[in-house]
Design a protein around this nucleic acid. Sequence first.
DNA 1: CTGCCTGCAAACTCTTTGCACGAAT
DNA 2: ATTCGTGCAAAGAGTTTGCAGGCAG
Lengths: 155, 155
Amino acid sequence: MSVDAAREKFQTYLADKGLRVTDQRLAIFNAAFAQKEHFTAEQLLDCARKIDDSVSRATVYRTLPLMTGSHILREVDIGSGEKFYLPAGNGNTQVAQVVCVDCDKIFEISAPFMEWYGSTVSLKLGLKPVSQRLQVSAQCIAFRSSGRCPNRLKK
Amino acid sequence: MSVDAAREKFQTYLADKGLRVTDQRLAIFNAAFAQKEHFTAEQLLDCARKIDDSVSRATVYRTLPLMTGSHILREVDIGSGEKFYLPAGNGNTQVAQVVCVDCDKIFEISAPFMEWYGSTVSLKLGLKPVSQRLQVSAQCIAFRSSGRCPNRLKK
DNA sequence: CTGCCTGCAAACTCTTTGCACGAAT
DNA sequence: ATTCGTGCAAAGAGTTTGCAGGCAG
């Protein structure tokens, strides 16, 4: 999905809900789609402020659910306290996250059997699956060779 | 794994680290293994206090990592802010969580292919897998029939 | 004028930590 | 004596919310 298609989708979503396309929302949208990796709310705030310095933290947090709700952004929770976001791309939900145990870097990889697998598992319980996520913790190459990741932040 | 085997394992783990088996740690252990479902730190505190009212929140939070570290407890993060715990059972890591979108009830189900699948996915990236989790969001039976889960808490 | 949108700051939730006292070795 | 363990309260991180003013329709 191109940036333009995503913007269109976002604007349609807002219009459907009787919400307005404001400068701040657009700045946050553009900031989100300028990211090259997974990003946090805080990183998004920083970037959005470079585009429009009137953007506040509150507005970022209020806009993120609008963007995930319109399916232009996907939320990724790796259980590290903060949530990550990324452009929803091609709408493919069959994606697994592989997270490095040391530096928390997130890799994404196509996992074509996952959806079928999630469905199988849910239906065994009589539940109707809505979404599924395969999350793998792993040691990245740098960690294995040097015992430490270069871009590790914590500790 | 029986409760007794788990207690043994826990005590051995503590001994190996030069840590002591205190009344509070035992109370927290017993509280954990008295639970019938996934539980939060707060629920564990409540229950542990009924056994030994000198148990504090801090000690619960300090003991939880000891119990997960000794592999008698498993941590489950469904991305809802708080973490859940449950006895690690038979040591089987090939378990998927199915979480109801409305009431957040957690179902667990054996997912025998998951480990293989996580490994396949990691190795494609040149990473060494450590653990994997398949998490499925789904609508539970009650939600589908009545539009609302009986044990729903939020909102 | 009605209702959406905003920034600010305070509030909130869950978890972690500094401190001083107490207990085990 | 030394090390570990504790409760308490404060701090911390990330996120949400109440409020008063601003702006669009």
